[in-house]
């Protein structure tokens, strides 16, 4: 116990650094996957068959294979197979590769959620707007958008909570996120070795962050509860 208290400041410091990397990956993924997912959704709903077919195939492949494989392929493939290590070395390169894999993967999941939200708004809503002389863009922004958002928020919340935990997968290409940081004290780091409690400790970071997110997303869902 005495020992743990002595080690605490060092460990917390390392975990904080790791968690910042976790957060960076989390937010970069969201910022990239929100718009990319929308593009993919439009692609998969396109009336141009080759485009919708291709998009749906990609989404099917990405959703049907583990993110971990995608991470490994995206990180190693350019350097080992193409002889073109586009990611560069070091932590920056690993972060770029991880972000790319996460953005693509999550964009595919988001695209299905968007698609459900967009197609879930009854056609009668658009027709009512048309009959009332509204333009297509007025119908989209004044009528359909909020109804889509309301449909999208609950499944999106699930994906976002999952993303928080999925960031740990980036450990596989040695991205120094919070679990990597916790694990380092097993092997030895900062003069501490054989300590397993820092690894357990990382769980609190996830719990607290997910708790905050759950509150925020729940609040948003409540906000949209005034209509059905």
């Amino acid at each position: 116990m005495q020992l743990i208290l002595e080690q605490m400041p060092v460990v917390i410091n390392a975990l904080n650094t790791g968690f910042i990397q976790t957060l960076k990956l989390f937010f970069v993924t969201l910022i990239g996957a929100f718009p990319l997912g929308l593009l993919i959704a439009f692609g998969s709903m396109s009336r141009f068959r080759p485009l919708s077919g291709f998009t749906r195939l990609v989404v099917w492949i990405v959703r049907g294979t583990p993110l971990m494989i995608q991470l490994l392929i995206i990180y190693y493939f350019p350097g080992l197979v193409l002889d073109n290590p586009i990611w560069g070395g070091g932590e920056t390169g690993r972060f770029l590769a991880a972000s790319t894999a996460f953005i693509i993967n999550y964009a595919c999941y988001f695209s299905e959620i968007y698609r459900g939200g967009i197609q879930g708004v009854p056609i009668g809503q658009e027709e009512a707007g048309l009959v009332l002389g509204m333009t297509k863009s007025q119908i989209f922004f004044r009528i359909k958008l909020l109804q889509m958002i309301k449909r999208i928020v609950p499944p999106m919340s699930n994906e976002i909570i999952t993303l928080v935990k999925d960031t740990a997968l980036a450990r596989i290409i040695a991205l120094q996120e919070v679990i990597f940081a916790g694990q380092s004290f097993l092997k030895g780091s900062h003069g501490i070795s054989g300590a397993i409690w820092p690894l357990f400790f990382t769980a609190f970071y996830y719990l607290i962050f997910n708790g905050l997110l759950t509150l925020l997303l729940g609040w948003l869902e409540k906000k949209l509860d005034y209509f059905r």
Binding site: P122, G124, Q125, E127, A128, I143, L146, Q147, K150, Y226, F227, R228
Partner: peptide
């Protein structure tokens, strides 16, 4: 319309 199609929000 038969099904009203009011704007729910």
């Amino acid at each position: 319309f038969q099904s009203f199609n009011l704007f729910p929000q």
